[in-house]
Simulated assay, not measured.
Amino acid sequence: MTIAVSIVIPTQRRPAGLATALMSALAQTGVDPASLELVVADNDQVPSARRAVEAVAANAPFPVVYAHEPAAGVANVRNTALRTARGGLIAFLDDDQEAPAGWLAALLTTRARHDADVVFAPVHARAPQSEAIYRPYFERFFSRLDDAEEGPIDHFYGCGNSLLRRASLPGGDTPFAVERNQIGGEDDLLFGNMQAAGARFAWAPDAWVWEDPIPSRLTLRYTLARAFGYGQGPTEHCWSSTPRDLVGVAKWMLIGLGQTALYGPIALAKWALRRPDRAQALDRAARGLGKTFWWGPFRLIFYGRTA
């Protein structure tokens, strides 16, 4: 039978998270296993995930394929996964996510019902009880929530927990922009370009997954840096678009200045008063700064390290 759907898990030195993601992907129900394959794309310099993947493959209900991409970078590993995958539909699951048994079937149902090129779905983050003060903030930060009902949407999200129709992807074998290898946002750039070209997006509220952020990410130092990077996204996208959208660049920079002017003093006051909700105000201020300071020396490296 022809492979219709490739479940893709990019990974880099997260053995525990990868094991959970693998088991959840292989436990999918409501989909003919003969139409599926699982592709694990390893972005470590050495093939550190190969043994674990091959061990799982021995008893898997459908083919499990290992791909090694030693060249560091989030776009590199996603592109390698796509080149390896055989399915006309690509379901992305991150290596810190766990999918319920009906996850893939829900994604496929929404895609078919609305003839979508890309389907996005919720992510529910879980932070340990030990993160008492900032736990609500961390769980909101790493979650993806939307009040939309199932159906078409006019916006997009990141690649983790999404379903893509391969034929709708631009760029041949490398739809993810390699210039985003270290800073991230390669998926935002791809989906932004697809939207400009008329791609159809849909939301599948029943296709949710859990996300368990690694401990090193459960710090304000990390989340505020990421908030700054997320803030850079819309301004940088306008700059990178063809033709370049200078009006959009100016608009987002001004919005960023306004957000910083509003939330900066609020964040400082809440920090001085040791308010438990201070993290959210700091997050808003950081996103505003990112919209304003988005070019060269202000770009932060989040990916691409293999040592």
Rank of each mutant, 00 (worst) to 15 (best):
V5S: 01
P10K: 10
P10V: 12
Q12N: 12
Q12R: 15
R14N: 15
G17W: 05
T20Y: 00
T20A: 15
T20M: 07
A21Q: 04
S24H: 06
Q28C: 06
T29H: 08
G30T: 11
G30W: 07
D32P: 05
P33V: 11
A34R: 15
S35V: 04
V40C: 06
A41R: 03
N43P: 01
S48M: 08
A49Q: 09
E54L: 15
P61Y: 09
F62K: 03
P63T: 11
P63F: 07
V65G: 01
A67T: 12
H68F: 11
H68E: 06
P70H: 12
P70D: 09
G73N: 05
N76Q: 11
R78I: 03
N79L: 06
N79Q: 10
A81Y: 04
A81H: 05
R83I: 02
T84L: 03
A85K: 08
A85L: 08
A85R: 07
R86Q: 15
G87N: 11
G88T: 09
L89R: 14
A91E: 06
F92Y: 15
D94H: 12
Q97N: 09
A101K: 10
A101H: 10
L104P: 00
R111M: 11
R113Q: 14
H114V: 11
D115P: 00
D115G: 13
D115C: 03
D117W: 03
F120D: 02
V123C: 08
H124L: 12
P128D: 15
E131G: 01
I133S: 04
Y134T: 08
F138W: 05
A148N: 13
P152F: 08
I153S: 02
G158M: 08
G158L: 13
C159N: 14
G160H: 05
G171W: 09
G171L: 09
G171H: 12
G172N: 09
F176R: 03
F176A: 04
V178M: 02
V178S: 04
R180Q: 07
Q182N: 12
G184R: 06
L189Y: 12
L189D: 10
G192M: 09
M194W: 10
Q195G: 11
A199Y: 09
F201V: 09
W203I: 09
P205I: 07
A207E: 02
A207S: 04
V209S: 03
V209Y: 04
W210I: 04
E211W: 02
P213F: 12
P213L: 14
I214M: 13
P215K: 13
R217G: 05
L218V: 12
L218M: 13
R221Y: 01
Y222D: 09
Y222K: 06
T223Y: 07
A225Y: 01
A227K: 07
A227T: 05
F228C: 02
F228V: 06
T235K: 04
H237V: 01
C238M: 11
P243S: 14
G248Y: 07
G248Q: 08
V249G: 01
A250D: 14
K251D: 14
I255T: 11
L257R: 15
L257T: 08
G258R: 11
Q259Y: 10
Y263K: 04
G264Q: 11
P265I: 14
I266S: 03
I266C: 02
A269P: 00
K270G: 04
A272P: 00
R278Q: 14
A279F: 10
L282D: 01
L282H: 06
D283G: 00
F293D: 02
G296C: 01
R299I: 10
R299L: 13
I301H: 12
F302I: 08
G304T: 05
G304F: 02
